[in-house]
Design a protein around this nucleic acid. Sequence first.
RNA 1: CGGGGUGUGGCGCAGUUGGAUUAGCGCGCUGCGUUUGGGACGCAGAGGCCGGAGGUUCAAGUCCUCUCACCCCGACCA
Length: 417
Amino acid sequence: MKRSQTFIRTTKNAPADEVAKNAQLLIRAGFIHKEMAGVYAYLPFGLRVLENIKQVVREEMNTIGGEELLMTTLQPRDIWEKTNRWDDAVVDNWFKTKLKNGTELGVGLTHEEPVVDAVSPYIDSYKDLPIYVYQIAAKFRNELRAKSGILRGREFLMKDMYSFARTQAEHDELYEKAAAAYTKVYERLGIGGQTYRTAADGGYFTERFSDEYQTVSELGEDTIYIDEVKKLAINKEIYTSENLVKLGLKKEDLVEKKAVEVGNIFPLESKYSDTLGLYYTDENGKRQSIIMGCYGIGVSRVMGVLAEHFADDRGLVWPESVAPFRVVLINIGSSSNVMKNTTEVYEKLQQSGVQVLWDDRAEARPGEKFADADLMGIPHRIVTSEKVGDGKLEYKARTQSETKNITLSELLNILVV
RNA sequence: CGGGGUGUGGCGCAGUUGGAUUAGCGCGCUGCGUUUGGGACGCAGAGGCCGGAGGUUCAAGUCCUCUCACCCCGACCA
């Protein structure tokens, strides 16, 4: 698209009430707008990043057989009372509201109960299982304190998947398949190297561990102990010698790091399915419990983590997989030669399916265009000008400082693999 | 929820200690002109009633009371 077509603008100053780097950069670049504490709107370019992250997650969930659906934000009280999660004394970060007639409703903070409710009519027989269902939707949690920009909001975007298996063995298989998919997601998002599968508390109803995906970061709220060789970690919360033995980890191999939880998966056993009356009939006509698993990725949080991690003193440095545009095209000067050359590149890139932002602003000087391109973190930069000359393009990667002159076909070779 | 801090044009700030000309500055914005390879320059403009309410006073952005919001630390949580 052309820069002149968007309403957004970048700023040199970040708002004073934002301390977190992710929020400062994303606001300066015009990607997000703070509506209130812990609640952010996604502006056009920020939304592109968010959608790209969603797409990566979606593709990996689909690959393992996940079926996407969309649950509701408004929640009926009864199903949550059945599992004893309605009472504020049990779950204290509900947002709740009321119908005109006084009926209490919950505002979705997680979706185990409603998912069970939704799939119940379709699961009767062993032939109906196993399944994975997932959604990518907003979650609402009444946190005492929102912080760290989009890393901890009261409204945030989450991918949550739920698996339904016939046996514990089948569940374990689904669980590990999802774990492998998670590893792929973080690799594709560019944070595979610093994201660790981390053993954590499985919850009060299971003896098993849950697994968190923790990305090493100074902003982290968790402390984890990492075994770099095994690419595994253990959360400080359960860091006991007994657990180390269970996990096959040795104290002397571990390094302590702060980390941000970018995802988690955990076994639900048959707590929700049993409680909500969801069973299946096996080959022998006998009623059996369904073993569930639950798999979350904080999509908007991941965006914040990426913004924190991929940044330098000039701004954001998005990985290719999530960048709002792959190429920013900057024309310097507007002589007919330059405009002709630029238009050709722009059209060719679009025809090739490359997402390109043409900074076509006539009033913006070169330095301003460069600064904006850097701030927005677009991976590839192309400059056209009289100086570069006809038929040539100046290329620079966001991660590098040197430029080189290339031809349009050489550019396409770089971008279209 | 405990502790600390902050609210002044779209953004960043000064002014509040010791109340008093028409509330300033930078960025951004509008117009004209000159510029055009790393956030240009000149001239001329527009835009705030100082988070909100109440009070003290001849006089309040500055003092008092209440209130709302935001940030940081902690506890809690994806």
